[in-house]
């Protein structure tokens, strides 16, 4: 966390507009991101867009379950905006619980958010409220669950056609856990 007087300009603008709904400014390897309340997600993006951040570079997520020292809700959704006139960038982040992860859609502000949000729904199960076409982007409709969440079994696959010598992921995972316990690594 960086002290308020060294926050980047975009964070200061957000602080002025959102007040306490700007939760904090995170710093990771020298890059600062404004963490906002999930309810203020769309408002924050609209404000930044009105200040010249007119290009959505990226929108993605990460599941921080079990991440050392992580206090906030586990599902972190982040985005990067770029100002084509100012050549400046802004990073925005919101943390959501795993159950009922919801955010307002940005697809009315940025057309490209449509597919970013579909991918984010596909992989992390973040429901973007108001999205015009929220269906899986990469995986198939029959797929159950969201595979980039930490609670998705790492070896579990969901074949569409019968597979010979398919991996029994549960027994493999159990064997790995047992081996890790034996090594005293405490992982698995």
């Amino acid at each position: 966390m960086s002290p308020a007087n060294s926050s980047p300009a975009f964070a200061e603008e957000l602080r002025a507009a959102l007040g306490p709904r700007l939760l904090r400014v995170e710093s990771w390897q020298g890059r600062e991101a404004a963490v906002v309340e999930p309810e203020a997600w769309l408002e924050a993006v609209r404000l930044l867009k009105s200040r010249g951040y007119d290009f959505l570079m990226d929108l993605s997520a990460a599941d921080y379950s079990g991440f050392p020292g992580h206090q906030a809700p586990p599902l972190g959704v982040s985005l990067q905006l770029f100002g084509s006139g100012t050549r400046r960038r802004a990073w925005l982040k919101a943390y959501l619980p795993l159950e009922g992860a919801r955010l307002a859609t940005l697809s009315d502000e940025f057309a490209c958010a449509n597919w970013y949000e579909r991918e984010c729904w596909d992989m992390f199960g973040v429901e973007f409220v108001g999205h015009p076409h929220l269906k899986r982007l990469l995986l198939y409709e029959e797929f159950q669950g969201h595979p980039l969440r930490k609670d998705y079994p790492i070896l579990k696959s969901q074949p569409l056609i019968p597979m010979r010598n398919a991996v029994d992921y549960e027994s493999v995972a159990a064997a790995r856990r047992a081996a890790a316990d034996e090594d005293g690594l405490g992982r698995g």
Binding site: I154, K156, S157, P162, V167
Partner: peptide, 13 residues
């Protein structure tokens, strides 16, 4: 690749 997405070899089918 050993994950949710990939077939572990086409000889599976």
């Amino acid at each position: 690749y050993q994950n949710y997405g990939s077939v572990p070899g086409i000889d599976c089918f």
